[in-house]
Design a protein around this nucleic acid. Structure first.
Length: 887
RNA sequence: GCGGGGUUAGCUCAGCGGUAGAGCAUCUCGCUUACACCGAGAGGGUCGGGGGUUCGAAACCCUCACCCCGCACCA
């Protein structure tokens, strides 16, 4: 039964009601049936305690568009949602909260602290779902997963143990990125480089007394450093072996100022560039990546002067021990100044590595950690993209992927955190380490008591398994008993931000291939960053942040979604309030057009039956043909992730073809002002058809409003969500109808145009003389003269009649027109316009004729192009002749 | 240094070998019973500079300039 549509479009009135309706209908949950064609996609799991920002709104809108499109297209569709425990990020949030109460995690101890995080998690775990719900995400909440769930944890443990057994996970002492604030090691990709104005300190290192004696000189070696405090840990000085200035000093010793330690002068062609600076480099093997390598090459000891908390150690000397590293820097400078060893200080712009999560300066540090030997995993992952098993869109990201994967370093996976998957390794009192699926209390090697490794795994280790661990995979063999895995793995598409290509996408590919033997997904779409309307990054300090939930509350989810879609070409997205406003007008337009249609549709959709195509008139054939072309276009664009093209195609069609033209053209018949009762019935049927198909095409982009309208329209299916997505139908194509309808529109436009140019008002009426090319054209205009009369506001249309002298002539789409205007003073402006029009036409004609006169063109250009040029020439000639009569 | 992207109407962008486009903004006219979150119309671009390929280039190639983003390095 058809219902009324509210007079005003008020999204807040129905969006949440509609979502509840979908959930109750169970439309988000696919069936577990291997025989049906499936489509599956997993969400990039947001941080469990996070608040959704505009970037989440984007990535989840895009996923939902694809998911709804596939579901309507007949696929057994699963969108699996969930959240990530997000080790460091979550721990940080809770630590900050506790800090506000004056408590540190160390006050609580590991177990209590982890308990606190779980409490926090439980409190916030519904927030993500609630927020995604407001956006209209059609995810299967019954399958929601969390990276610390029991099953997923089992998968993590299995993968760790297996990689260890295969020799791809090892424990060792190496230079890592250390965050003194979080007091954990982090991987290379978690370090962010930020440009900073610093100082370059030039410091004199004197030669050791015995070197002064043996060389007979008292030279000083001037080194430069941005981090003077690390000199306390220097265990050598390097020069280039070919550098004449210092060659005689190689093998001798220098005297380290302040510490007064004798350190060797070594030759290191890798570390030292003789052209750069003074050609002398200090070596701090314990606190610099390059120095660490150099130290190993030159057998220099590592002296750790900075501790895990960022404070100087005892090894730094009694006057430094316990001092913060930046305080120590000041003190070192002071002492050097006193000793006269500080030669000069320069301003220096350089990059400083910081921890991307807490923004603390990274301290390179030698430490015992767990690593994944990555190359054997990276190789097949590179191959999968290279051979097309996985495609990345936009394709330019593939180059970035290869570039990174081919230069990849071992992955530091251990974190000295408390929140996460604890590493399943067991150390015994005799120093043995065993890795095991089951908890061990005694050492398998010597029987001594064991304790479990305290480190946890990098968050991305567990999210790297997300596409299969969420489907029930828990290790070799487990897949047999995991029906979801059987039906939905591998997934089809992955949609995520480019910023986690390395963090997440690459790791899923590597681990997926290794453990399931299949690519975890075959298509990756990387979306850009949402920026403000001027392309600036959104940030709290700039005050240009747009909160998606505010937008949803103001203009509804559909307007936000459509704006995001129409902006998503794969590059960064400029988003401003005015843009959203613009597209909310479009939603309003859909609402009102539907309201109009529903005032006239008296046949219920259920009983309407198929359209009687043979009885349709030209205008109806035209709109169906156009809609059909749009249908093909939208399906095609969605299949290649052109959300922008697909949505603007629909926008253009619905607003400017359906509303501005078709509805206006249909009005005389719908309102009973013209045509037979049969015409009217058919027009209504077509109006209904076009609206219904349009709503279905639009549904993935704006699910709420389309459902609200569609339900009131009385659809055949229980929900538009499960109504079939329109597909191209060859027999709806009608080129002839399109040509005539388009011509009629161009003629109406031309008349409106000239009317405005001549200063007439819509109330002034004229007579139009029109001549077609053949009988069919003439019949068309005879049949549809009422359209010209109504839409162009004429008082008479004469088809094939001879226009009197003094009329305005033109040629539009091959039709010769003449408009008889009432007597009116022709303004100079109008005359100028006629002249410009003529000049423009002459210009184009000259260019076309030049082309056609060129034998190279007629010989080489494709026949269709040459034909087109000829036709254009004919039209322009005719038009020019007509225009000249207007002068 | 390596890699990627960009430079098209006032703004934000699409087009990527065959007559320069969209949205927003601007101007003019119109409250015509779906919608003023509207309708009708107008103005506005030598497609960053230079060179080349081609019958034909905004599009392909080379080159220069400027901007952005990764990665690496910066003693």
């Amino acid at each position: 039964m058809k219902e009324e549509l509210a007079k005003r479009y008020e999204p807040t009135e129905f969006e949440q009601r509609i979502y509840a309706f979908w959930e109750e209908g169970g439309y988000f949950t696919p069936v577990v049936d291997k025989e049906r064609p499936k489509f599956s996609i997993v969400i990039p799991p947001p941080n469990v305690t996070g608040r959704l920002h505009i970037g989440h709104a984007l990535v989840n809108t895009l996923q939902d568009i694809i998911v709804r499109w596939k579901r309507m297209s007949g696929f057994n569709t699963l969108w699996l949602p969930g959240t990530d425990h997000a080790g460091i990020a979550t721990q940080l949030v809770v630590e900050r909260k506790l800090a506000a109460e004056g408590i540190s995690r160390f006050d609580l101890g590991r177990d209590k602290f982890v308990e606190k995080i779980w409490e926090w998690k439980e409190q916030h775990s519904t927030e993500i779902k609630d927020q995604l719900t407001r956006l209209g995400a059609s995810a299967d909440w019954s399958r929601s997963r969390f990276t610390l769930d029991e099953g997923l944890s089992r998968a993590v443990r299995y993968v760790f143990v297996k990689l260890y057994e295969d020799g791809l996970i090892y424990r060792g002492i190496a230079m890592v990125n250390w965050c003194p604030r979080c007091q954990t090691a982090i991987s290379d990709v978690e370090v962010e480089f930020t440009e900073r104005n610093g100082k370059l300190y030039h410091i004199d290192y004197p030669l050791a007394p015995e070197a002064v004696e043996s060389t007979g000189t008292d030279r000083r070696l001037t080194i430069a450093t941005t981090r003077p405090e690390t000199m306390l840990g220097d265990t050598g000085v390097a020069v280039h072996p070919d550098d004449e200035r210092y060659r005689d000093l190689i093998g001798k010793n220098a005297l380290l100022p302040i510490a007064n330690r004798v350190i060797p002068i070594v030759a290191d062609p890798i570390l030292v560039d003789p052209e750069f600076g003074t050609g002398v480099v200090k070596i701090t093997p314990a606190h610099d990546k390059n120095d660490y390598e150099s130290g190993k090459r030159n057998n220099l000891p590592q002296l750790r002067v900075i501790g895990e908390d960022g404070r100087m150690t005892d090894a730094a000397g009694p006057e430094f021990a316990g001092l913060d590293r930046f305080e120590a820097r000041k003190k070192v400078i002071e002492l050097l100044q006193e000793q006269g060893a500080l030669v000069k200080v320069e301003e220096h712009l350089h990059n400083v590595g910081i921890h991307e999560k807490c923004r603390t300066d990274i301290e390179p540090m030698v430490s015992q950690q767990w690593f994944v030997k990555i190359e054997p995993l990276a190789k097949p992952a590179i191959e999968a993209v290279r051979n097309g098993s996985i495609t990345i869109t936009p394709q330019s990201w593939e180059a970035t992927y290869f570039n990174w994967m081919e230069n990849i370093h071992d992955w530091t996976i251990s974190r000295q955190l408390w929140w996460g998957h604890r590493i399943p390794a067991f150390h015994c009192t005799n120093g043995h380490t065993a890795v095991s699926m089951d908890d061990l209390t005694t050492c398998p090697e010597c029987g001594a008591a064991t304790t479990q490794e305290t480190d946890v795994l990098d968050t991305w280790f567990s999210s790297g398994l997300w596409p299969f661990s969420t489907l029930g995979w828990q290790g070799a063999g487990s897949d047999e008993e995991a029906p979801d895995y059987q039906v939905f793995y591998p997934t089809d598409t992955l949609i995520t931000g480019f910023d986690i290509l390395f963090f997440w996408v690459a790791r899923m590919i590597m681990l997926g291939l290794r453990f399931t033997g299949k690519v975890p997904f075959s298509q990756v779409f990387l979306n850009g960053l949402v920026r403000d309307e001027h392309g600036q990054k959104m940030s709290k300090t700039k005050g240009n942040v747009i909160d998606p939930l505010d937008v949803v509350n103001e203009v509804g989810a559909d307007a936000l979604r459509f704006t995001l879609a129409v902006s998503a070409s794969g590059r960064d997205i400029p988003l401003g309030k005015s843009r959203i406003q613009g597209y909310s007008a479009f939603v309003n337009k859909i609402w009102n057009a539907s309201r109009f249609a529903m005032m006239h549709i008296d046949t219920e959709l259920r009983n309407a039956g198929p359209i009687e195509k043979d009885n349709l008139r030209t205008v109806e054939r035209w709109i169906l043909s156009r809609l059909n072309a749009v249908t093909r276009e939208v399906n095609r664009q969605l299949s290649v992730f052109r959300f922008d093209e697909a949505s603007s195609t629909l926008y253009q069609f619905f607003w400017h073809e359906f509303c501005d033209w078709y509805i206006e053209m249909a009005k005389p018949v719908l309102l009973g002002k013209h045509g037979t009762e049969d015409d009217r019935r058919l027009a209504k049927r077509v109006l209904l058809e076009v609206l219904d198909r349009s709503l279905r095409l639009l549904h993935p982009f704006m699910p709420f409003v389309t459902e609200e309208i569609w339900l009131k329209l009385g659809g055949v299916e229980p929900s538009i969500m499960v109504a079939p997505y329109p597909i191209f139908e060859e027999d709806l194509e009608d080129g002839a109808a399109e040509r005539l309808a388009t011509a009629a529109q161009a003629i109406i436009t031309m008349i409106r145009n000239v009317r405005a140019e001549r200063g007439f008002t819509p109330k002034d009426r004229f007579t139009l003389y029109i001549r077609g090319n053949d009988e069919r054209d003439s019949n068309f205009f005879r049949d549809y003269d009422y359209l010209l009369l109504e839409l162009a506001r004429l008082d008479r249309v004469v088809v094939e009649g001879e226009p009197p002298a003094g009329t305005h002539h033109d040629v539009v789409e091959g039709f010769h027109l003449a408009i008889e205007f009432p007597e009116k003073q022709v303004s100079q402006e109008q005359l100028d316009r006629v002249r410009r029009d003529i000049e423009k036409t002459e210009g184009e004609l000259a260019s076309i004729e030049g082309k056609l006169a060129n034998e190279q063109f007629t010989r080489n250009a494709p026949a269709a192009i040459v034909e087109g040029a000829r036709a254009r020439q004919t039209e322009l000639r005719a038009r020019l002749g007509k225009l000249q009569q207007n002068q």
